[in-house]
Simulated scan of single mutants.
Amino acid sequence: MILVVGGAGYIGSHFVKELVKTHDVVVLDNLSTGHLWAIDSKANFVEGDLGDKVTVQHVFDTFKIDAVLHFAAFSLVGESVLDPMKYYENNVAATLNLLKIMQERNVNNFVFSSTAATYGMPIVDVIDEQIPTLPINPYGRSKLMIEQMLADFAQSYQMNYVVLRYFNAAGAYETAEIGESHSPETHLIPIILQHLLGQRESISVFGTDYDTPDGTCIRDYIHVTDLAKAHLLALRGLLHGTIKTATYNLGNGNGFSVKEIIETCERITEKRANVTYAERRAGDPAKLVANAEKIYTELGWKAQIDIEGIIKSAWNWHSK
């Protein structure tokens, strides 16, 4: 049995869709940002909070857990600055509660959803895993603290783990059964598509004077199903004993500017966007692109879905 914490959320629910094809699954989620409708019907579901010791112990006592995948962190950068306590309580303290119960039950395999925010403001355009981790906000720091806890647990308690640092997750499941549904929505692609569906009056571009070809920020986008498949490979490596500890970037290795994303959305939807331009936001690097060669070399994983496929799948979902 595989435990997926946060399995009702955007990325977690897409992973569960893939995982139930080959494994028995139990999802633990408090539904604070996840959705009951997003959980695959083949999975067992326990509603509860990761920081609630009794609930987490109940899951481990009820199901024979072989590995845990963690998708249950809060992830809004701006919110983390305004309310850091919320992020340290949920992301760090609640994860420590989970790791302690795993250690007590001798469950040693853990896959953690981390983030490119652990790198902060790197001085290079293409980021590999050797770049120093210097997060600049409580969200990034909370994720890095969990990574550091895992390293310490591996040294002292024989914890086996894989850390997966995402760049920009996007897209939706191929059947459009599930997709991105945040409140508030902060991600670029769904914001554009919501506008093109008439749900927003306009979209804002923050900064047009960056050192990039068209002056807008460049980011690396990865389809959520590609992310799910990377987690499956990491899980298999842990279960088969071929991985003890590893940290990997997950990205396409290609960057697209904000203007390019808007133009691609317009082309796919055959609709025109009403774009307003604003000043730069503090803390936005000009370019963030992943070097994901390490996971390709070691696990054979490579992103398969290009930017058009990402946006088409998201459009199918948001249109529904």
Score class of each variant (00 low, 15 high):
1 M>G: 07
3 L>C: 05
10 Y>G: 04
13 S>W: 15
16 V>A: 04
16 V>Q: 03
18 E>D: 14
21 K>I: 15
30 N>I: 14
31 L>Q: 03
34 G>K: 01
36 L>E: 06
43 A>T: 14
46 V>T: 12
50 L>M: 15
50 L>D: 11
51 G>S: 15
53 K>R: 11
55 T>W: 15
67 A>L: 08
67 A>V: 08
73 A>L: 03
76 L>V: 12
77 V>T: 02
85 M>I: 08
85 M>P: 05
87 Y>G: 02
90 N>Y: 08
91 N>A: 04
95 T>P: 03
101 I>Y: 04
103 Q>W: 04
103 Q>R: 10
104 E>R: 08
107 V>F: 01
107 V>D: 03
115 T>G: 05
115 T>P: 07
116 A>F: 09
117 A>S: 05
128 D>K: 03
129 E>A: 07
130 Q>L: 13
131 I>G: 05
131 I>K: 00
133 T>P: 12
134 L>S: 14
144 L>N: 08
156 S>W: 15
160 N>M: 09
162 V>I: 09
163 V>A: 05
166 Y>S: 04
167 F>K: 01
168 N>L: 05
172 A>P: 09
173 Y>G: 14
174 E>A: 07
176 A>S: 10
177 E>H: 14
177 E>F: 12
181 S>Y: 14
187 H>Q: 12
189 I>A: 01
194 Q>A: 10
199 Q>V: 00
207 G>P: 08
211 D>V: 10
222 I>H: 00
232 L>Y: 08
235 L>R: 00
236 R>G: 12
237 G>T: 01
238 L>G: 06
244 K>V: 04
244 K>E: 01
250 L>K: 10
251 G>H: 04
254 N>P: 10
256 F>I: 13
262 I>G: 09
266 E>S: 06
274 N>I: 10
278 A>G: 10
279 E>Y: 04
280 R>T: 05
287 K>C: 06
298 E>R: 06
